[in-house]
Design a protein around this nucleic acid. Sequence first.
DNA 1: GGTCATCCTTGATGTATATCAATTTGGTTT
DNA 2: AAACCAAATTGATATACATCAAGGATGACC
Lengths: 234, 234
Amino acid sequence: MLDEQLVRNVHLFSVLDDEQLATLLRYTRAVQLQENETLFEFGQSAERFYLVSKGQIKLFRVSEDGNEKIIEIVSPGKLFAEAVMFMQHGRYPVSATALQPSEVYSFENRAFATMLQESNGLCLKLLASLSMRLHAQVNEIDNLSLQNATFRVIGYMLDLLSDPRTESAVLDLAVPKQVIASRLSITPETLSRILHTMARNDIISINGKIIAIKSVQRLREFGRYDRAQYAGVR
Amino acid sequence: MLDEQLVRNVHLFSVLDDEQLATLLRYTRAVQLQENETLFEFGQSAERFYLVSKGQIKLFRVSEDGNEKIIEIVSPGKLFAEAVMFMQHGRYPVSATALQPSEVYSFENRAFATMLQESNGLCLKLLASLSMRLHAQVNEIDNLSLQNATFRVIGYMLDLLSDPRTESAVLDLAVPKQVIASRLSITPETLSRILHTMARNDIISINGKIIAIKSVQRLREFGRYDRAQYAGVR
DNA sequence: GGTCATCCTTGATGTATATCAATTTGGTTT
DNA sequence: AAACCAAATTGATATACATCAAGGATGACC
């Protein structure tokens, strides 16, 4: 059973009229995934794109030496692999597996491509969406190379904040810390040390996957002025 | 005087018919840039996009502490800043300045956006172009985080190779080494050490901005197995 | 409720790259 | 050719993070 409201709330689909939406849904199917089950692998021919309805999906690459780098963790309500859709003979640039028992809706590229040809508004919407993604990536490269590990961890936590203006907040990491570490291109050990240094400085408190941020402002500042590794309590 | 052939060879424009091309060119103007002259700055309202006809343009960001990170070096025949075009009130995500005396053709976003609304083929072409860019970025993130500095240097040199199948080649770096270093997110010192280690291992020879690659195959292997810093002659 | 397997934490050590500092080289201008 | 300036090189040292290794904590399953 498809959650039509979830589909309707996807930004990219918001321009579809009722008839187009109906057509899209006709070619849509829900896929159940167990924990660690793989949806598609790097290099496979890309015939479909996906919307997460429940759980979490990791998109990742495996390097020659067998190390896995998580590119993104996709949460409910978010699309993925839609960038390949209109390329003929496109191949998935990453692998996708479920971090938890999950459900995704699977859309046919071809059906959507047909709509793209009919609706210019849709086409422009997709352009805007891709271009925003591209800008986000430029920022990402920025962060990876210009900033240090502590900065990235803080950025990740700030992203999880629903309301960026609250001064204190409680957030749920939702995935194993090692997964977050991979996403941030650091080792689990380093992530642990960074978090605990913050805790020692009374900026956050850690309770398993639940992190309480005591002061968002001091969290931001910590990234600018401190090096986590050797920073003592002050 | 516009080099119409150069414009016609741009992949994105190849789908335009003669009339559309004429319309585009009517709103196009050539801009001359001196060395170090800035074309636009980060955050400025993006009304135009560009094609390099002569010289080299660097796209970069400046971090809070004043360090500049070069995101890309754009060469003749390549477009830049076209990803912002159809976003209303878009802002440039980077700054652009000339590395040498250069010439760029400047296109109006609005004129092009009008064409986009008329031509679905053009729209799809742009989608494909952006999506390829997105994939390239995913690869880039991959390289930045998974690989080491030596690997990135090798990747940069292999990219400059016109024919990737030749076993030996001579290539012109064309820009100061410090610019390349910034592009690769390393310091000039580290770049120098890496190049000279390769030279000591008889893989390349260095003559100012001219690098002779003695064996492309050995160059590739060097990235996989070696650490440049402490690798001796073998 | 104990056992087992993950995940997380903590410490000791290693290393790739940055930083700082001093020459050297190369290209421009006089 | 001399003088000058930016770019490149080279060496010494510092440091952020990784790696290796050894416990702890947590939760699932019988």
